[in-house]
Design a binder for these strands. Structure first.
Lengths: 214, 214
DNA sequence: CGATTTTTGTACCATTCCGCAAATTAATCC
DNA sequence: GGATTAATTTGCGGAATGGTACAAAAATCG
């Protein structure tokens, strides 16, 4: 009896008070993310977003705030998804080469999926563009870039400890090179470079990194 | 007397017929380029362009066509400038490491200059974004990407012939790696990563490439 | 000077843009 | 059922957008 009216968020049905929502915030945010990713911030209008999400503009506003806030929330969502798709690969135990192959394959999947052509990387394609003028977005972009660097650095450090890389190898440098390969396929995918070519680039980069002596 | 009225483009003063232009098309296009580069296509309004170039909208339209045409002409101009700044470096004779250093230094200068913060790379930051939906821009982006790849490949091929690289080195693979490094600093510069860090990335990449055995 | 040509300047049009206010609907609580 | 709460719908308002029509201006040509 004590906490019956309180803590409605914990249990199964929140039993919210007013009119129920006609949309699922999660899927709506996903649709918004798709749009922003394809068209960028400025080229995406609230009408576009409204149509894609099925929510009319006031509902959008009420749920996510103004256009910029929705953009930022979309970007956060993108980063969470990207992180999730990579997390397992970083956790499991496997040889360096295989780990790199799987990470790049995951990145390619993210960049190349989408019905209306490849979608590319949110960070590289649209967020980086906004980053110059918007400090908050810039901070997120920086965070995204360094997160990838650190993840790769962790890979190489572990591989070095296991003797898969020579003692002379510098994990930080290798990581920035790996990140660079990711950035490059992100850009190229946006120009509709065919998957085969991107995979060839990935293979070349991996060969270079696992055979690294510098 | 024969070609007096004809061929007015060749000589010093064209002696054009009507009211003289109040602007210089070249510098106006430069201003437009700056804007598009900083803000992208959609976020740059004709009013912005009009103010930056000093031309009013009808003049803009008369001189360059509509907004998209102006964008494309700006991008062409950018590519010409970038090519020009690199051309000398590719022409001269010098050791591989020095050539790479100068190429990357030139790229950094292009990306980091600008009063209102770093401007990044037109191809990577804004054109790649438009490339998904606009075939003409996509073709230009693809051309820009492969041009850089080929230029780098030429460097490595020459270096290999001069014995600066082992026989096992693959110029095409190294070139894509070098391009990737360029793409990466282009993205990072947009997030205002300090020059020092970008230079460190460049140094790491160069060390890797000139010491390449793969 | 007058005719011609080309560019400029002002003003405008039709759309689209973002954000919000007001009224409506649908649920729960008592 | 009535009150309350929360989300929906409609529609507006003011600004900004891309593009253009039209007249004034500034040059050359005859």
């Amino acid at each position: 009896m004590v906490q019956k009216s309180k803590l409605p968020t914990a249990a199964g049905q929140p039993k919210r008070r007013g009119r129920p929502r006609a949309y699922e915030p999660d899927v709506a945010l996903g649709k918004a993310l798709d749009l922003f990713r394809r068209q960028g911030f400025a080229a995406t209008s609230l009408d576009d977003l409204s149509e894609a999400t099925g929510m009319n503009r006031p509902s959008l506003y009420g749920a996510f705030g103004d256009k910029r806030e929705l953009y930022i929330k979309s970007y956060q969502r993108y980063r969470e998804e990207a992180r999730a798709s990579m997390a397992a690969i970083f956790r499991e135990e496997m040889p360096l080469r295989q780990r790199l192959e799987r990470i790049f394959a995951s990145a390619l999947n993210i960049y190349l999926s989408g019905e209306a052509g490849p979608r590319g990387c949110f960070t590289v394609v649209t967020a980086a563009s906004e980053a110059v003028s918007d400090p908050e977005i810039r901070a997120m972009v920086l965070d995204g870039l360094t997160e990838l660097d650190k993840a790769f650095a962790g890979c190489f450090r572990r591989a070095k400890e296991k003797g898969e890389l020579p003692e002379s190898a510098d994990p930080a440098v290798l990581a920035q090179l790996a990140s660079a390969a990711v950035h490059s396929i992100a850009v190229r995918s946006r120009a509709r470079v065919p998957r085969k070519e991107l995979e060839a680039i990935v293979k070349g980069a991996i060969d270079m990194m696992v055979g690294a002596k510098a």
